[in-house]
Design a protein around this nucleic acid. Structure first.
Lengths: 113, 113
DNA sequence: GACACATATTCCCATATGGGAATATAAATG
DNA sequence: CATTTATATTCCCATATGGGAATATGTGTC
């Protein structure tokens, strides 16, 4: 048996760094393909293919508007990843410290604007 | 460019379901290879190779004892996965979160005038 | 040393890949 | 309709895969 298809599940789809970047880009607002291409500085066909993979595993949704296709992230689709990782949370070392650190970072970001 | 190596990072390593199973098995206690082979009902070479991948990306540690090799999970290694997923937490359509958001919106509206 | 046991490595192969180039499809515009 | 714009699809190929079989390596035991 060969390696599983990238479209077989969320884990395989998100193994590719570009696709994680794309998903992050689409988290806050829907964007047309061209904007993603410009943001990631990669060929348009490449981006379109990545979007196809994300679509197949349900991580993004599309809406057609004229000749544009507006993509947006479907954050719920990431839960399998999160759930898996979360089962290891209790084994992390310095857990309390790290949580505290991240909370503080967040606080700073909020106040920085 | 072809697909990235499974050993290139945690995301690629954990795209394979067997490797996630192995990691879950090793979360609570270290185990010799044979025990994993028995638990997952798969060929020993296959398991050894999976362990090799997990080792290379730092998700497991090994300890040699006689002719056994005791493997244990290194839970800290999963944090990249967790951190990535966590950035989408706020977008989840979870009931409590929604209630909270609506409360905040209301609050803002009240103060906006 | 001869052997059994535990694990890793090598060899094999069908399969999916990601990117670039070229091309196709579709919609707006003149 | 011809052309431009936006996006998807097809074709190409070097590359890594996961599993099984066979083999190698290492370690206890007699």
């Amino acid at each position: 048996m060969a390696r599983a298809a990238t479209t077989s599940d969320v884990f395989n789809a998100l193994a590719e760094p570009r696709r994680r970047e794309i998903l992050a880009l689409l988290a806050d607002a829907e964007k047309p393909v061209g904007e993603i291409v410009a943001a990631l500085a990669e060929g348009q066909p490449s981006i379109s293919k990545h979007l196809g993979v994300l679509r197949k595993v349900g991580l993004v949704r599309v809406r057609r508007t004229g000749r544009h296709r507006m993509y947006r992230a479907n954050a719920d689709g990431i839960r399998p990843l999160y759930d898996f990782a979360k089962t290891f949370e209790k084994y992390w070392t310095h857990q309390l410290l790290r949580v505290k650190e991240r909370a503080e970072e967040k606080e700073q970001k909020k106040h920085r604007r």
